[in-house]
Simulated assay, not measured.
Amino acid sequence: MNLFSAINQALHIALDSDPRAYVFGEDVSFGGVFRCTIGLADQFGKNRVFNTPLCEQGIVGFGIGLAAMIVNEAAKFRYRSGNQFNCGGLTIRAPYGAVGHGGHYHSQSPEAFFCHVPGIKVVVPRSPQQAKGLLLSCIRDPNPVVFFEPKAWHSLYRVAVEKVPECDYMLPLSLAEVMREGNDITLVGWGAQLAVMEEACIEAEKDGISCELIDLRTLIPWDKDTVEASVRKTGRLLISHEAPVTGGFGAEIAASVVERCFLRLEAPIARICGFDTPFPLVFEPFYLPTKNKANIGCNQVHSELLNWDVNMSSGRAHPNL
């Protein structure tokens, strides 16, 4: 099953298992641009699956009102009511990231913006199997969730294919997954970037570098314990995302790891990210963090250990000691 099929199946399950569930948005009644909602209106009717005007603010505002039965700011609704009411059931699905031809309007990665809003959870799946389980968890969570679906270069909606259980299942939010175990360096990412980072791990292993790869899956609240445990083991960290490096969520991860693991770090934390420019159309291959950039980053961070060995053998102290 590919990504759009997994999303479609999760929405089928959500609508079938909960009569209060609705799907509405731009072009969703006939399947949407990526066909993720195809067949839903035929099965569940136009009262539960329907198109809206092309106005994102109106769609979100209507969603808040429908989920909470009063129009208010979704992220603050639970806080303002002293936890008496919440805006649970509101899940905002949105594509994100590079698609190969989206340019500066349709290739952005705005996840860090939403991570800065207290009360909203931010989830980014990397694959069809992950997308279905995480989406069902988001829909059933008592907090509003922004669910980013990666487009990737050749549209991950259709290219990525893997075995997806037909049953109703949920994957836990705020729990990262260690995709590959290693001893020399920790790599952290999310969404479509995981495929790039996995290729970088394979290339790094040719140079004798053992990489531990972590899929964060949920950015807010993110799984600090899993990342911290890995960095304490490897002593090195590389973070990669498509969003611009300045103010990207990788900076938050780096700051937190420095606070919690400073004495265990053997090298400066590296970030392989997009540039601080609008997303370029013709220069997309230069903008995006690739496996080669990540592999170079792995080698640079790993070389700090070699410098440490040389410094120790010559009697010079490591700068972290």
Rank of each mutant, 00 (worst) to 15 (best):
Gly274Cys: 04
Val145Glu: 03
Phe148Leu: 09
Ser17Cys: 12
Pro128Ile: 09
Pro278His: 09
Leu281Trp: 09
Lys46Ala: 15
Leu173Cys: 07
Gly315Val: 10
Lys291Asp: 07
Glu284Leu: 02
Arg35Phe: 04
Arg126Cys: 15
Leu306Glu: 10
Leu306His: 13
Ile214Leu: 10
Ser256Leu: 10
Asn72Val: 14
Cys273Lys: 06
Ser256His: 07
His12Gln: 15
Ser81Asn: 02
Thr91Tyr: 00
Leu263Asn: 11
Val257Tyr: 03
Ala152His: 04
Glu26Tyr: 08
Arg78Leu: 02
Ile269Ala: 06
Leu134Glu: 10
Arg271Trp: 02
Val99Lys: 10
Thr52Asn: 03
Val301Tyr: 01
Lys132Trp: 09
Val231His: 10
Thr37His: 07
Gly97Lys: 06
Cys201Ala: 09
Ile7Tyr: 11
Phe44Leu: 06
Val122Ile: 02
Val159Met: 01
Ile120Cys: 04
Gln108Thr: 12
Gly65Arg: 08
Gly82Trp: 03
Asp309Gly: 14
Asn311Tyr: 14
Gly102Pro: 08
Ala75Arg: 11
Pro125Asp: 01
Phe24Pro: 14
Glu242Val: 03
Ala98Gln: 07
Val146His: 01
Ile296Leu: 11
Phe262Lys: 05
Ala204Cys: 00
Ile70Ala: 15
Ala267Asn: 00
Ile38Lys: 13
Val258Gln: 07
Gly25Cys: 02
Pro125Ser: 03
Ser174Gly: 06
Val124Cys: 06
Gly82Ala: 00
Cys55Asn: 08
Pro172Phe: 05
Leu15Glu: 08
Leu265Gly: 11
Asn292Tyr: 12
Gly58Pro: 05
Ser29Tyr: 08
Phe24Asp: 05
Gly189Ser: 13
His101Gly: 10
Arg78Ile: 05
Ser210Ile: 03
Asp207Ala: 11
Leu263Glu: 12
Thr234Val: 09
Ile70Asn: 15
His318Arg: 12
Ser314Trp: 09
Asp27Met: 03
Phe262Pro: 09
Glu177Phe: 15
Arg232Phe: 14
Ser313Leu: 11
Arg271Leu: 14
